[in-house]
Design a binder for these strands. Structure first.
Lengths: 155, 155
DNA sequence: GCCGCATTGTTAGGTTACCTAACAATCACG
DNA sequence: CGTGATTGTTAGGTAACCTAACAATGCGGC
């Protein structure tokens, strides 16, 4: 087992840890949004991935349909999302303008906090981080689609 | 507003997104651990940061003391953590050997999944990711200690 | 020494997030 | 058509969180 070159395992470990700390850091801003983490996260999917059926949204959030139904109830009651019939059994959930506003405001707070943490870095370090983020996004996205079949079979 | 050099804001944004996707990806393994996400996360702090008072653990998990008390109850009932008196009002919570085992097993599953996603990358990309992880860890850690005073004042 | 005040946890009681089981309705397709 | 798979919701329960109130202890000033 070679280890002279950066091992995949060690890199995975450090990335994992970094991601945990990063999100723990920025999540401190979320209290100010006035809605819960679960609702915020669902809303975020709606805003960035667009309108979804309830089932798709549940899968995206790794939650069962009844749970998502109730989260959407809460979001609707606050005017942040809306149900719309697609055919007569499935529905499309989408964010309202107010939902988008609330989400973006919270997101800006998160990013601002993260930006403060990055402010002291030299430009080339920043560039390196940017490139790393892109690599990571592509790698996890690829792994998702690969394992989509797997996961479906497993449930 | 300059944008020729990689802007801090844009980089923060991509890192944020990458971290979210990364954790969403690996979290799929957690169901197999048999305990809940909240318990797993608290246990992880105990294993990696060592024994803590209940209050410190609550702060680390960004949760109130009663909530943490109840999480620790659950962990104790399963033999994964243990309370120990420090003086006669404060207690030290620590992971048991079984707690450490369970945590490490889950962690290995997470890392394995992440490693699979990284497997296709060229060695130099891996090295880049490793360096990025380190940079990030240091940057967020520094920001934490800086804002510790701030946060204390705010509560 | 001791008195007040801050620190540390727990109890009580409530809300929200999540689950499984059961169901209702609709769609798709032979 | 009618049967089986898909899509949501209702019902009922547990776990995760909160605030308020409290009990007990530690600690610094006098």
């Amino acid at each position: 087992m070679p280890h002279s070159v950066p091992s995949v395992e060690a890199t995975a470990d450090r990335l994992h840890s970094a991601a945990i700390h990063l999100l723990r850091h920025v999540r401190k801003e979320d209290a100010q949004s006035g809605i819960s983490g679960a609702q915020l996260s669902a809303l975020s999917v709606l805003v960035f991935a667009g309108p979804q059926t309830l089932g798709a949204l549940a899968r995206a959030e790794q939650v069962t349909p009844p749970t998502m139904s109730q989260l959407v109830n809460a979001l609707e009651k606050q005017g942040l999302a809306r149900r719309k019939d697609r055919d007569r059994r499935s529905i499309l959930v989408s964010a309202t303008a107010e939902g988008r506003r609330l989400l973006q405001a919270g997101r800006r707070r998160r990013l601002k906090r993260l930006a403060r943490a990055l402010a002291a870095l030299a430009p080339e370090k920043l560039a390196l981080l940017g490139e790393a983020a892109d690599l990571l996004l592509r790698a996890t996205a690829a792994a998702e689609t690969e394992q989509a079949g797997d996961d479906n079979r497993r449930r």
